[in-house]
Design a protein around this nucleic acid. Structure first.
Lengths: 151, 151
DNA sequence: AGTCATAGGTTCTAAATTGGAACTGAGTCA
DNA sequence: TGACTCAGTTCCAATTTAGAACCTATGACT
């Protein structure tokens, strides 16, 4: 049997598999998180995350190639760059918040969450829930049914 | 500077980091996906996913240790086990669906999605959106504000 | 001029993880 | 008996990650 390799994932029909092909490498999602939370420079990310510079360099390139980060110069002489999240990356924020809520319930810890998500208007903490746009009903493993797709 | 290792992640305060410590290894989320979609036996998962058996063995153990899978015997002589998702795993389904929707927009492909999420009542495809329970407003990178937490 | 510091990397080696294939063991079937 | 199923384990090679040092360009300091 021909085995599947990690590098074959981008060509999968399954969206979860394609998401993993971009964000499923070690550290990648944490780097994206930092850029989304406003940390955008190589050394700043490296200092906060404390991963090896080599890995950070590699992951930033891959996120750029996949259209999740944009390299923008912020000074000349010498030219230095910041890594800015694109719209695709910003659109991942709600997924990350849903993930955060999941971990707060199922992977609890004594340490406090380093970030809070606040509503821009009310300035109150937000409490995420996934709903179905069509019915307005909350999506849970009870409310939905997963079916093999035959198109 | 003391570098952080991948194995330090479970002790992080950040929920995204803790989620990655459990689901951020190669193949892990895809294995969980298969069990959630009803594929529960070692060989069945291996045949569908086509990963090496020893990786599958390793990941199943880790998912079990983290409380996402439960090993249940389904026959005697010889005793064989199925891997059943726990409530913690089932609660990840909405996150996965949000992720799927994200990838369909931002990592498009010609291949069709192998699975569909349907409403159990209406039998219609569901269309996920993350909202704030408090305000009912959709959570987007525009609607929220991320703030460092000082507790 | 020489030294330091800063930002953003690259290069090197060692350790760990993953890929690929074959093998084990308990039991079933022909 | 031999072939087959399921659920792994074992072995070695290939790839990735960890850790540290080094490089380049610029500016500031002495």
């Amino acid at each position: 049997m021909k085995l599947m390799k990690w590098t074959d994932l981008p060509n999968e029909g399954c969206s979860v598999a394609r998401t993993m092909s971009v964000l499923g490498d070690r550290w990648t999602l944490l780097i994206l998180r930092d850029t989304l939370f406003g940390i955008r420079r190589f050394d700043d990310i490296q200092k906060r995350l404390k991963i090896t510079r080599h890995l950070l360099s590699d992951r930033l390139k891959r996120l750029e190639n996949h259209g999740l980060l944009e390299r923008k110069p912020y000074q000349e002489r010498p030219t230095r760059y910041e890594y800015h999240p694109t719209q695709a990356a910003r659109d991942f924020v709600p997924v990350m918040q849903a993930m955060t809520a999941w971990a707060q319930t199922h992977l609890p810890t004594e340490k406090s969450e380093p970030y809070r998500f606040l509503d821009r208007e009310t300035r109150q903490p937000t409490d995420p829930k996934v709903i179905d746009v069509n019915t307005g009903v909350e999506i849970t493993s009870q409310s939905i049914w997963v079916e093999a797709n035959r198109d």
